[in-house]
């Protein structure tokens, strides 16, 4: 999953300080451990260098200066591209797909289209395995079955998420 693109997506809602951005990320996506500050600032620095964010304002205070970051047009294009491109079907995709769906809801993009595009990609892969299976020996069939059951589990998650999009939208926009 791309941390940089996720931060860009969060910045698309409104410009934020690095500290607030880290909290916004932790609140929605850090299921196990919070993001390290160093990771956030290193990522923002890279995004700044690549022209995907810009510094909107600098606030001087008693401590270090506080920079407020805003996403650039190139940054928005980067988010757009990432959200519309299906992920290559592989195990443990959920966190990436979940992030995409939440970012789409946060930024007012059609989350159901992201799920449908991914669904097509998963089924395309399932057709490949189904064809391989019909031509293969028993060992090949069992290997393909293993992949098919995993892909099917992903698809069930996609279907369930599609059915719960309205509830999820309410929750993430709170």
């Amino acid at each position: 999953m791309s941390l940089g693109t996720t931060l860009l997506g969060l910045l698309e809602r409104s410009p934020q300080h690095g500290y607030d951005l880290k909290n916004a990320y932790d609140e929605r996506f850090a299921t196990r451990r919070p993001l390290a500050y160093g990771q956030v600032y290193a990522t923002l620095s890279r995004l700044l260098k690549n022209g995907l964010v810009e510094i909107e304002s600098v606030e001087a205070g008693s401590g270090p200066e506080r920079k407020r970051y805003a996403v650039t047009d190139a940054g928005v294009t980067d988010v757009e591209r990432w959200l519309s491109r299906p992920e290559s079907p592989e195990p443990y995709l959920q966190s990436t797909l979940y992030t995409k769906v939440v970012l789409a809801l946060l930024t007012g993009r059609p989350a159901d289209e992201i799920l449908d595009v991914q669904r097509v990609e998963h089924l395309r892969r399932m057709r490949e395995f189904t064809r391989r299976k019909s031509e293969g020996d028993l060992a090949e069939q069992l290997i393909c079955d293993h992949a098919l059951f995993h892909l099917e589990a992903d698809l069930r998650w996609l279907e369930l998420t599609a059915a719960r999009l309205n509830d999820l939208a309410k929750e993430v926009r709170r």
């Binding site: 449908d116 669904r119 399932m126």
Partner: peptide, 12 residues
């Protein structure tokens, strides 16, 4: 989905 994978395409 494993049944649908035998089809040429799907309609949802």
């Amino acid at each position: 989905a494993r049944v649908a994978a035998y089809a040429d395409r799907e309609v949802v």
